[in-house]
Design a protein around this nucleic acid. Structure first.
Lengths: 216, 216
DNA sequence: CGGAAGTTTGAAGATACTCAAGCGCAGTGG
DNA sequence: CCACTGCGCTTGAGTATCTTCAAACTTCCG
């Protein structure tokens, strides 16, 4: 779901839709009809289990495709909520399907979009299962920076559209742990941090945080 | 990748292939050609990051479909290793693609197989991010029992084909923690445990372990 | 401007990890 | 045949990391 949209998807004529910050693009249980290409803004996906437990399972930014969970049940399986005012292009599944039958390249694109998400999810499982707090934060920042850079933002910094609590939920940490971790990375001179505003000062050393040290 | 294979997939004529315990069905970097339907036996998938870090990201049993990571790169993105002697049916991707163009139901099946995996992965991320050790173990056992039961094994017990270390890697725990957790669940009378042999004695209370208590 | 929400930081406590030792089983070779 | 070795499992004691609880500060938005 986090995938860059491949070439063919870009060329589909598609209706646009705006979602206000805090509103849902769709919710768990909603009927599944379309995929969505994020034009501007950003979103989070959240799973809720039967009991109260809930977790942010992904963040999605401009240039990525979301919404194709729930093909197999016909219903969306999680909530997709806008972190800021966001615009998406609607790609009706019916059209994608028939289009794919005529245009093999599109068919492959759809599969690529999905398989890429699997790979990312497995990387995320690796992170959640084997890294300690500060490593998770470093991985998170590097990943986000990379994804934002590719859609042409300023290289030298970006804004976190999510709260510490949301980051913590995503990374399997408490919000206090996130805060402390950021503070330490800043004190060490790896990043500059002004509340939501982040700049990666020393990406080499930040990357080294990942590789170095204990596998937990 | 963990998905039950839907109807159309079952009817494809397919070559069979046997994998000895410990051998790989494919490895990260191998060219991607086929999907595989597991006939008998079981497998694990493992991701390795650039540094030494590695993790089991999934277990797969008879009736499930694996191998369609790597569509987007043309190469497999992780290793798939047999936990016991295992037989799979080979479903060449070319054939699936052309078949899907003729047979819309198959096309949908492929998508279902993939979207189901996403949903499962997100559940796994929820587990890794928000549960404590004993809850993870309970979730693991319940999930595995359910998947084995549906392919017609004895209801009253099953054999773990993986080591404690592999379970730990999958659940983000150390092998000692897995061992202690199993022992406690056994002492509490929720399960019976004889090394690799497990029986869920009180599935209600085991389920309650999940729901109860702290969200970490 | 004021209240609510979000962030930072400290201190105390809990969970899971590390290190370590012992047991049992399977396969190997003397 | 049986000791021997390796591997996997269990259990204990001490420790590190992360969480919990709490308080104060800042930012955002109506």
């Amino acid at each position: 779901m986090r995938s860059k949209e491949p070439g063919q998807l870009n060329q589909l004529i598609a209706e646009r839709r705006c979602i206000r910050r805090g509103d849902a693009l769709f919710r768990a249980g909603d009927p599944f009809n379309s995929w969505y290409a994020v034009s501007t803004g950003s979103l989070k996906s959240t799973v809720a289990s039967l009991d109260g437990r809930a977790q942010v399972t992904g963040f999605y930014v401009a240039g990525e495709v979301v919404g194709w969970d729930g093909i197999h049940t016909g219903k969306h399986s999680f909530d997709m909520v806008a972190l800021e005012d966001t615009e998406v292009r609607v790609l009706p599944y019916r059209q994608l399907e028939s289009g794919a039958r005529l245009l093999p390249a599109l068919h492959t694109d759809l599969h690529k979009t999905m398989s890429r998400e699997i790979v990312r999810d497995h990387e995320m499982m690796l992170l959640l299962g084997s890294m300690r707090a500060e490593q998770r934060l470093a991985a998170f920042l590097l990943n986000l920076a990379q994804r934002l850079k590719t859609v042409g933002r300023v290289n030298s910094g970006f804004t976190l559209q999510m709260t510490r609590a949301e980051i913590g939920s995503f990374l399997g940490l408490k919000l206090e742990t996130v805060s402390r971790g950021f503070s330490r990375l800043a004190r060490s001179g790896l990043i500059e941090l002004n509340c939501r505003q982040v700049r990666i000062v020393n990406s080499l050393r930040l990357r080294r945080v990942l590789h170095a040290t204990p596998a937990r």
